[in-house]
């Protein structure tokens, strides 16, 4: 059984935001409009956090793409009363929209603020409504949602591999953000396969995990120059 994970090379990320756009397109994430976005209700399953280091004029700009960290010990899963948030066998932190009653407890428990609430029924600005992905359900008002590591692509690739009678090779599965990253800052793969690219990166001495001290055991590794 694989354990899906991701490695993010912060030294490669240039903050272009292609991953954010790709994620919106792939996962049918509603656009909320300028007013709601100003109130902090824009739902970006992956976001580019932008930090400045140092004092002006000696400033260095760094970017950190943050998505659901697919934690091994996920705080969001424990607190969900209806098992809408639970752990799959392949290490994914799954969200079952139809089971969600909208307590929003999972979002409070998430240290990464990687969970999003549908305040209204989803809507898309024209012509975005013409490019909805048929593999992903849309979420009604009152439901939590979050990055799934593009589980529809994972399952699709697994089914395809089984149909072809072959093995799933490293790199066969690419979540939308990974696929769209021009500088290959994002790498996705099986962490239990010692030869996969993601696995090798996650063991890199440059690697750290986000808020490791909270004890969530994330499956996303951030690689950065150690100063």
């Amino acid at each position: 059984m694989p354990r899906w994970g991701m490695a993010v090379d912060l030294d490669r990320c240039n903050g272009c935001g292609a991953c954010v756009v790709a994620c919106h397109a792939e996962n049918n994430i509603a656009t909320v409009g300028a007013d709601e976005a100003a109130r902090g209700r824009a739902n970006h399953w992956i976001r580019i956090e932008r930090y400045w280091e140092g004092e002006f004029p000696d400033v260095r700009l760094t970017f950190r793409p943050v998505m659901c960290q697919q934690c091994g010990n996920a705080p969001c899963e424990i607190v969900c009363p209806t098992y809408a948030s639970h752990h799959t066998e392949d290490g994914l932190n799954a969200q079952v929209y139809n089971r969600c009653v909208g307590t929003r407890y999972c979002a409070n428990a998430c240290p990464y603020n990687a969970r999003f609430f549908n305040f209204f029924n989803p809507a898309w600005d024209k012509p975005l409504h013409l490019q909805l992905n048929p593999d992903v359900s849309v979420r009604e008002a009152g439901v939590m949602e979050k990055c799934t590591f593009c589980v529809q692509r994972i399952r699709g690739a697994q089914l395809q591999a089984r149909a072809d009678g072959g093995e799933l090779r490293d790199g066969d599965i690419q979540p939308a953000c990974v696929q769209s990253c021009a500088v290959r800052a994002l790498v996705f793969g099986d962490l239990d396969d010692p030869d996969s690219e993601a696995s090798r990166f996650s063991r890199s001495p440059r690697g750290t995990r986000l808020l490791e001290d909270v004890g969530t055991r994330p499956n996303v590794t951030y690689l950065a120059r150690q100063s």
Partner: peptide, 10 residues
Amino acid sequence: ASWPMRVGGL
């Protein structure tokens, strides 16, 4: 036990 669900490593 009848429907084991994995949550948060518990």
